[in-house]
Nucleic acid binder design. Structure first.
Lengths: 194, 194, 194, 194
DNA sequence: TAGTAAGCGAGACGGTACGTCATGTCTTAAC
DNA sequence: GTTAAGACATGACGTACCGTCTCGCTTACTA
């Protein structure tokens, strides 16, 4: 018999998500266990298993709970400036220890659990990419971007390198790094004659 | 007292790494246990713990064992063609199920164990990046790349997007995708006047 | 948090004690392991560790489970005959392979684990000694035993030699041996004038 | 090929037996391991296994090494006094913590390993019993002991109760206890007319 | 007096069992 | 009738010792 969401205890749900977040920052993803979540939340283990598929799903929801809403990119008319803004913001986020830990957790989850991967991608990441893509479309309409530029790939050109550097910890994240990246992307997409 | 490598059994070492590779392809990283490795290799658990820090370290070495040597990039004089070659090869590798599983494993390890991360980066990944960087330097000397291009970032511009697409499984890996990426990178680095 | 006996599974308890008894007769005390008990009983190791301190405690309880209740000695009025009966029974028990194995196990446990020793002594052995002591008291009241005989020591005079012979395997256990021992004890306690 | 005793290192033998004794008093029989003996003695494990069958055999030899020679009983002509002496000495020995530990070890060994049991009995215990038996024979020849008394059983009448009390820790060992026991035995063996 | 075979310290090896931990399921009592 | 609590079977963890094995080294007998 599947559980009836109508009877679900909101109190328990909140306690579980809160406990998960606390334990995540205290002991990291690897040190997190269902048992510790249940104990901290003052909840039976069964209550967790009844409503989530496992550790990954709980963590995902706990993170999603407190994630900023994906906001549309500002459009100042100046693509270079707007891109620089996105890149700087992204770089700053990856440089931040806390946010970085969250991303690490999500990335592991993506790699390990195919089912969760889809959810993470669609609920948390896609919106961001879409924001940039929308801005690029507007710019292309305004003739600031080559007509033949593959916009999805350009979006990846923006985020991919940051992700890569973060993952491999090859070099630090500075503002000048962000600006150089934005410049490279601009060069790649600016129409020939400009 | 630390173990003395002089007395180490090469036979056991090989058996362990071979068993690890087999089990990795059979049951994946999550399903891999030290006990199963020991059983399959016909080896005592202690022999594994004596020489490796844990599952991650064994896997890392097992993978490293059979990884192709990082080869220097071919330099045909035509940067565009050479870049296209690298990108195509990289894309093909990520598209391959087996190689992809290996990369997945390594990436998880990087995210989860800081100590291993460094080793993975230095022993397995850095050489590849260095190969591309060297080729770019040669091209810059030949005037085929802007003098002010930040080469490390250009390297990331090549690999980052592929990594990003692979991670998020946003779209499939095709040859035309690879070529479009190579073209974007070329556009970003080609000197203005050309 | 100590376990709550109220929730204890009687089914598991029985299975564990039964498995212990089987394995004890099959492979002896030294060959007995917690893992084998758990496997045979179809029980998790933790369930054993939750309710017992270790191998010794389980064995003790398994033995106690099926031990005959300590019965009061018959009092026929003839002390000599009654004593002969006890000694013969004791000797017979020590001569029996199965019962002997149990005693061996208990004795080792007594020697090795002080905490268990007390329990074994009080729950299993003391009652027997008390039975003989009670019979001796009755006999003393009837004038069949010296008034100044130290009864506790007389009890030891009955069991001690049997234990000693069993332990050292010096000579076999025969009925005539038993009778000779009973006679010696009788001689030691019978009042002078008789 | 069996080892050649001629080449045996006396130095190692001594070190092993000394280490065994130390560890026996420090951590008891159960806590004793071959590895700890080897480490403490500065000796390879193989050297132990070459010359002994296992833990029990080493312990046995270590104990035998420092055991007082079995001395013949004094014969003062007064059996009662001589018996009292033996019993007092035995009781004192069992009351002593150190000697008691040794006896405990030996007893466990007897119970657990049949092969060792024989050796322990013959090399360590039998001589004592023989001493008492010899004294009793002399007494019987002198008419101080019933002609029909089964001397082997009388010997057990002396030692058995002490052993029993020690094993079960039922009551403390005092001098008056010893004397009462000696008196009981005397009563059991003294010829009727005396 | 050299050569050589044994014993030696050391410790790696394949194993077994340990006692602990977390998993996901099942049971009980209380609200 | 869902919950908190927690016992349960399962199975991996990392450790401790087992008894065997192989290394060089030292030592004492043999040629």
């Amino acid at each position: 018999m599947p559980p009836q969401p109508a009877r679900r205890s909101e109190r328990s749900r909140r306690a579980i998500l809160a406990a998960t977040q606390e334990l995540l920052t205290e002991s990291g993803y690897a040190g997190l266990t269902i048992e510790s979540i249940a104990a901290r939340a003052g909840v039976g283990k069964q209550t967790i298993y009844r409503w989530w598929r496992g550790k990954g799903a709980v963590v995902l929801e706990a993170i999603a709970e407190h994630l900023p809403e994906a906001t549309a990119l500002p459009d100042t008319g100046d693509l270079r400036a707007d891109l620089r803004g996105v890149v700087r913001a992204t770089v700053a986020e990856f440089a931040d220890t806390g946010a970085s830990a969250v991303t690490r957790t999500l990335t592991v989850e993506i790699l390990v659990d195919d089912e969760l991967a889809g959810e993470v991608r669609d609920r948390l990441l896609r919106p961001r990419l879409e924001g940039v893509r929308a801005r690029l479309e507007a710019a292309r309409a305004a003739g600031q971007v080559r007509a033949d530029a593959p916009l999805d790939q350009v979006v990846e050109l923006v985020f991919g390198p940051v992700y890569h550097r973060w993952l491999l910890r090859t070099s630090p994240f500075t503002e000048s790094y962000a600006d150089a990246l934005a410049k490279l992307v601009m060069t790649a997409v600016t129409p020939a004659g400009r």
